[in-house]
Nucleic acid binder design. Structure first.
Length: 249
DNA sequence: AGCATTGTTTCACA
DNA sequence: TTGTGAAACAATGC
């Protein structure tokens, strides 16, 4: 379920595991832990403690004490962070850390598209969608010929917006997802930025992006909460996109 | 059985 | 060279 709101929730979970001594690491999943060989992450972390948990967009990273490495984490399409829970069945805990005293931290991910890596590189990741100001947002988002929906999903432009948050944001702003990003007026970009902030804030507060007003009606027999009309869908920016043809002309 | 999926990266093409 | 779009990746659920 991970978009920015879920990633922020995961970051808060990791904060529960700070300042505990790491005694073991399960990094045997060579796909989730690529390009590291099994045992590499374990060797770098055992004996250390996590000291701070950070997030930019959907990307998470944790600092360790002393001159220890940073641990990067990504939830992929279906991941979550579990603290002090029993191991999941079917080896769904793709990466885990065991602490002195018996606690643990796990990256639980049925789909296995999540990621754990040492010294993550975020040089290609844009500013966080929850932090960026109106000016920076307009400069970065309001350019190019791609549909605005695709522009919002580009993590190098602004980080943290996923398929559902993009649809919710465009609906709140009353903008058609296929509108070319570079053709939008300053007023429309301002409205889009405000919509992004409110949609993100609501999703974090209510527990996830699926709680969005429009996202909850984002299906074939749904109803637009504003006009009562029927949402429509198409493939835009490589993703299934839903919008209200009446409210988003 | 077949298709879609709340994500990211890589590759082909204009 | 830059930007855009599609495919690949893994595994599950409808």
């Amino acid at each position: 379920m991970p978009e920015l709101p879920e990633a922020e929730r995961a970051r808060q979970q990791i904060e529960r595991a700070l300042e505990r001594e790491i005694v073991a690491v399960d990094d045997r999943d060579g796909y989730v832990c690529r390009p590291h060989a099994p045992g590499e992450i374990e060797a770098a972390l055992v004996g250390r403690r996590f000291t701070r948990a950070h997030r930019r967009g959907k990307f998470l990273w944790v600092e360790t004490d002393g001159d220890g490495p940073e641990l990067g984490l990504h939830l992929g399409m279906a991941g979550s962070i579990r603290i002090d829970e029993e191991p999941a069945p079917n080896a769904w805990d793709r990466f885990s850390v065991e602490f002195a005293g018996g606690g643990r931290m796990a990256l639980r991910d049925k789909r296995r598209l999540g990621r754990a890596v040492l010294e993550p590189d975020f040089s290609h990741v844009g500013p966080d969608a929850a932090e960026i100001g109106a000016k920076g947002f307009a400069e970065r988002v309001g350019r190019g010929t791609a549909p605005i929906k695709a522009r919002l999903l580009d993590q190098g432009v602004v980080a943290g917006i996923g398929n559902l948050l993009a649809d919710e944001t465009l609906w709140r702003a009353g903008l058609h997802p296929r509108r070319p990003a570079g053709d939008m007026s300053v007023e429309q970009l301002r409205a889009l930025h405000r919509a992004l902030r409110s949609a993100t804030r609501d999703a974090i507060r209510l527990g996830g992006v699926h709680t969005g007003d429009f996202v909850a009606e984002r299906r074939r027999d749904g109803t637009c909460p504003r006009c009562g009309g029927a949402p429509t869908s198409a493939r835009i920016g490589g993703r299934t996109t839903w919008w209200c043809p009446n409210c988003q002309p």
